[in-house]
Design a protein around this nucleic acid. Sequence first.
DNA 1: TTGTACGCGTTATCAG
DNA 2: CTGATAACGCGTACAA
Lengths: 342, 342
Amino acid sequence: MQQKKADLANATIKDVARAAKVSIATVSRILNGKDTVSPPLVERVMAAVEELQYHPNAMARALKVNESRSIGLIIPDIENPFFPALVRGVEDAAQMHHYAVILCNTDSKPEEEEKYIRFLQSKRVDGILFTGGPRSERNVELLSTLSIPVVLLDRRVGSQLSAVITNNRLGGFMATEHLIKKGRRRIAFISGPAELSSVQERRQGYAEALEQYGLAPDQDLIQAGDFSFESGYQAASRLVASGQEFDGVFAANDLMAIGAIEYLAAYGLRVPAEIAVTGYDDIRMAGWYKPSLTTVRQPVYIMGQSAVKMIIDRITGENRQYTEQIITPELVVRESSGGKEG
Amino acid sequence: MQQKKADLANATIKDVARAAKVSIATVSRILNGKDTVSPPLVERVMAAVEELQYHPNAMARALKVNESRSIGLIIPDIENPFFPALVRGVEDAAQMHHYAVILCNTDSKPEEEEKYIRFLQSKRVDGILFTGGPRSERNVELLSTLSIPVVLLDRRVGSQLSAVITNNRLGGFMATEHLIKKGRRRIAFISGPAELSSVQERRQGYAEALEQYGLAPDQDLIQAGDFSFESGYQAASRLVASGQEFDGVFAANDLMAIGAIEYLAAYGLRVPAEIAVTGYDDIRMAGWYKPSLTTVRQPVYIMGQSAVKMIIDRITGENRQYTEQIITPELVVRESSGGKEG
DNA sequence: TTGTACGCGTTATCAG
DNA sequence: CTGATAACGCGTACAA
């Protein structure tokens, strides 16, 4: 009853060795292509592997060579339309290098972030890709104390951790400048969580554009949101309720832009005729929404890919230094800013 | 140089034992709360754990107890808006039980599916959640030969594998019946990949509704799509080009419904005035699209959760039998079918 | 070229 | 209640 466990359980290297009448060292060598082995033995071993449906136990290998061939991917929420493409970029690149990716959703809660970091540490992942929420400084610090490669995604946080980000200042500038060139003079900004570097930089670009074109900044035209559809809707309602005149809105992401447009439409203001709107991200829905959304496209899939390349370079030791990759965003002009008809 | 590796590398149970001046067995017992240990020892050990920032090596544990505490999640594409909520449901439930989820995107390619199955097998995941593409029978067979728990998601495939699905026949019936009740008589069906059980069942529900209300089925009103926006657009164009009269369209998913509406609008046909449209899934965009989409909601998040519960029951041996959980979908009436105004 | 034997970090069995 | 110690499956010096 103890022998011949063949069928159900997974075959081990020992089973293969026995079946091929060689030592386990030989099997290992053949499978890993290390030393050279005589053809006849290779043949016997390969036959046994096939026969027993042998698949090396990655856990055992991981323990031995001290690399799990897996990376952790921590994000706020896969249901946020910004992330699927990012995740896909990460997963594709990881799989190409035979790494598994462990997905973690934190809802931007610091406690969840920390929990996942510990979890991944226990799992001994070879690297962590981290997109933190607005209050993640402590966790970024925590990450930097770990002896494990980390790449920050879409966030720059004061530290010596590598990062893949887009040029948000430029993006904010382009969106605002576009509105100005469309003849808008009173441009509101619907912000995201103010703690995020990406948001700060977009706002900075917004301010720079106003200044460069001689437009007066106005604190009352800036409303905070949290990247959700709802918050965009609310921000627009506050803007309207405040009694401020405005003819343009730059929202820090597409979801809020859509939320804002929904409110404006419900209120009876026509977009873009009366109010021109631009978003940020270029999520898939942006092209299908009515009016289609003028926005700043971030090459999200590529960001995911790059982050993986970067972290694998760190893991394999090909580049141990701090690196920051800055990707350039692109303005996509559609209807919501009056772009297509104007 | 060989001692005191404390700082950089991860501390091991041995380090803790040494620091606390106890045996590793004692450390293990305390950490796992197995036997009872005297308070003073507990204290010393806990102090050492804290001091050394000890986190158990999950790989070693996995090797020993033969459970990796991870499950594989194989889906076609996280960028398809149907999946994020599903994935989120899976991830949340998995994390609650301390399982990691390894995400795999196959683009519905059988080769990719197989590659990932092998990959996960090597990783010795404790279970696999599988949503296959149209040509996945062979891979489902492969899965059933593995000695690892599997739960099929959103697909029923002739086999003895457990599954979590929705009642697609009912969903198809509800969507079609709704159109009929709205006064439509010539209702087209834009199908998904015909090999999928979900698609066959939706089509069956569509046919049953027609029959029950005494409407004649018409092969020419059925067009195949592949669940993509593009294919919905194309299907609508073929429908129009065929010269067939039709006043309603039931699309097998929301993306195709939106694609179809886009074509109809471009062609000059008004939705819902001239043609009423219903989709399927109730993706997030369905509520924001103009016209907002009447559709059949699938409780996707819950499906993901259920699948995890099911597979954990299998893993822990609480339920080794074949189980099929059928979730009931729900009709959501919005503008695209004329529901809101009429 | 091939085989023997040790150790990776755990858990669990068996003595004491 | 506590401590040696044998596995788990694999890779790799070292020996032959």
